[in-house]
Design a protein around this nucleic acid. Structure first.
Lengths: 209, 209
DNA sequence: AGACCAACATTCCCGGTAGTATGCTAACCT
DNA sequence: AGGTTAGCATACTACCGGGAATGTTGGTCT
């Protein structure tokens, strides 16, 4: 057993509390307007705690980004391993992705706020490397969808003239969730399932009668 | 003829130059990281010129936002007036919207950067009112699409169980353009047309074989 | 031709924020 | 038991950007 972790939460847990709070603040105020003090306030703590665990504000954002991607992978990869036709697989992946968007909303919104902003800023060399790592991670994730599109095209179950473009459309429709979805106390798991299924259906089958 | 406008560009033109530069900076650096000096630099001028025309940075953003919405309305409304079936109308509206996204990219990207950020900030009462006006403008625009979805549903040419959800999916797939589309010097009008048509086709007809 | 004003440029100030340096305390080790 | 260190809090600094005050210039009107 490590130090200081009998009563006081443990290191990994404390870290996640910080990223949770950060994701919340980023969603509420945007990347720049959210201050370290804001994050600390949510925790009922001060900057000291935050800077004890993270070198810089960018480092916090990177941690949030990485965690957000991890949530996505964890949700979609089980579907990938299923031995089902590509069209059905894509449908289930879309549903799973939509659920993750809603379940981890603060994290997923945070993703959209940064990325390209940090391409220009006076980021250090180390930060730039981490950033490219995050971009590659995201490309890898979207490639999971493109691969399924390709195999469905090859099998003849999917009609995809342009895989890249179709992939963009699919991801766009799904990721758009974080722009308009709002967490409401009166909504049930069934409501979220209806949203996820409805979105996936619209994407796969279109809206033409 | 007004003053000072024989050789030196004219007021309206000077205004548009500023919003153009602002949209460029917002796209490149984000809303907060883009400074007034950045905007002035793009113009080859100084803050004086900018602050002569705009009260605050927010005012600039509002002007950019309004102009961006205007571009959208101008592109889509002609299609709305056409006397064609709802499914075909929606297709053409989607194509028109996609073209506007690409043609006025800096403006459209700027839209995504702000909105909710300014919901919390220490904006004045006047600014808050302008903001709600912009939001209503955007809702009105998206309602154009929802209306067509509804009439297509009524006519039986569109299969839309949930109009709101389908509208979200359509707008999400189209607006996603501003996240991944990059202006390249070697791309022709035909390339952009292929993107617009391909996106619209995917949305209306889906990807199921 | 001289007053006048729009359209800028220059200069300065002040609030706010990322980051740092240091202080404090309670757990663990030996 | 006292030294050590993790895990914070407190106090402080340096800097940067928004916005305002003020200066400058060139065209216009009478």
């Amino acid at each position: 057993m490590n130090k200081h972790q009998a009563l006081s939460a443990g290191k990994a847990e404390s870290l996640q509390q910080i990223t949770d709070a950060a994701a919340q603040c980023f969603m509420a105020k945007g990347l720049e307007k959210a201050t370290i003090d804001d994050i600390a306030d949510v925790l009922g703590a001060t900057k000291g705690r935050v800077y004890h665990h993270f070198r810089s504000k960018n480092a916090i954002y990177f941690a949030v980004h990485r965690q957000a991607m991890q949530y996505c992978f964890d949700a979609v990869e089980p579907v990938l391993k299923q031995d089902i036709p590509a069209d059905e697989k894509l449908f289930r992946m879309a549903v799973a992705h939509a659920h993750v968007m809603m379940d981890t909303l603060p994290y997923q919104r945070s993703i959209r706020l940064g990325v390209d902003i940090y391409l220009r800023g006076p980021t250090t060399q180390a930060e730039r490397e981490v950033l490219t790592e995050l971009i590659e991670q995201r490309n890898g994730y979207e490639n999971l969808f493109r691969d399924v599109l390709r195999s469905g095209k090859a099998a003849g179950t999917l009609d995809v003239p342009n895989v890249d473009l179709a992939g963009r459309a699919v991801m766009g429709a799904l990721n758009g969730l974080v722009d308009w979805y709002r967490i409401r106390p009166d909504q049930s798991a069934a409501d979220r399932a209806a949203i996820a299924d409805g979105l996936a259906h619209t994407i796969i089958y279109g809206i033409k009668a």
